[in-house]
Amino acid sequence: MAQVSLKNIRKVYPNGYEAVVPTSFNIADGEFVVLVGPSGCGKSTLLRMIAGLEDITVGELSIGDRNVNHVDPADRDIAMVFQNYALYPHMTVRKNIGYGLKNRKTAASDIEAKVQDAAKMLNLTEFLDRKPSQLSGGQRQRVAMGRAVVRDPALFLFDEPLSNLDAKLRHQMRIEIKALQRRLGVTSIYVTHDQVEAMTMADRIIVLNTGRIEQIGTPTEIYHRPASTFVASFMGAPPMNLLNAESADGRVHLGGDMSVAASTADGPVIWGIRPEDIEIDPTGDIPFTVDIVEELGAHRLLHGQLNGQDLTIHVSKDVVVSAGPIRISINLDAVVLFNPETGLAL
């Protein structure tokens, strides 16, 4: 068990590319933290630096109370699960799981007992004598998990472990990983580009963009109070609606009579609203033209125009709508305002 702390960690590749700008954050003992961002945002680099697979250019990294900047990956007391599982193809599941222990000179009987325990936990007992090539994707993923669990490390690192699985299996493994982490209480860092994984699994999310942290917060905070337009549009599917609005006399106006109070200088402002915070209201004061109705089973998405700006509305499956003009109302408490130049929340 351990807390992790990063102090001004920076990564510059030999070719001069700065993959991670100086970054600091702390992860508490037993916390499940998800690093999320689009590809090339530096999330994997960050994780690999924590694992010790990548040199840290500048900064201080500590796991537990120990500075591990120059500690070999094997001695950092970590375990990592890779995107393509990275199982040893010529070893049986048993040997794959036990290999790390064997290298640490654990007694053979201990290894066997621990491998059995891990296999039982992950429902792998009947597959122990198979080779990875004889397993399905989900089973391989479990073996990779087993290899991490068996060592009883202080820190789990996950590098997009579910992106090679199909949607159904991904959903199932998401729950399994989360449950396992809860049970073992091991501090975990999980890298993904899938915002659904981030939202569902994380205790805390760190949103990264072009090598810098955009926001750190709980899933609820990130979702409802995005710190920037990047976070607003990256997290959530469909993304938050971002509309151009005008601020005047301490109020922000979105065409018509819609306005919220805001202490901002006069001028253009970006008005952010989640699709589910808008509802159809025949008595509402905003006219909206529905262009396309997207049928999603449990709910519908209405894509259309509000004063010439694109807008998406989320309605429940009970609300029947067809294309054409309707009237809507917006939950003004849920509005988030952004500075159009910096993209940061006001």
Partner: peptide, 18 residues
């Protein structure tokens, strides 16, 4: 040979000879 295999082995404590 995939890079991850080397990395997995490093984390599993296998040195160059192993």
């Amino acid at each position: 040979v995939p890079e991850e295999l080397v990395e997995a082995a490093r984390i599993d404590g296998a040195g160059p000879v192993k």
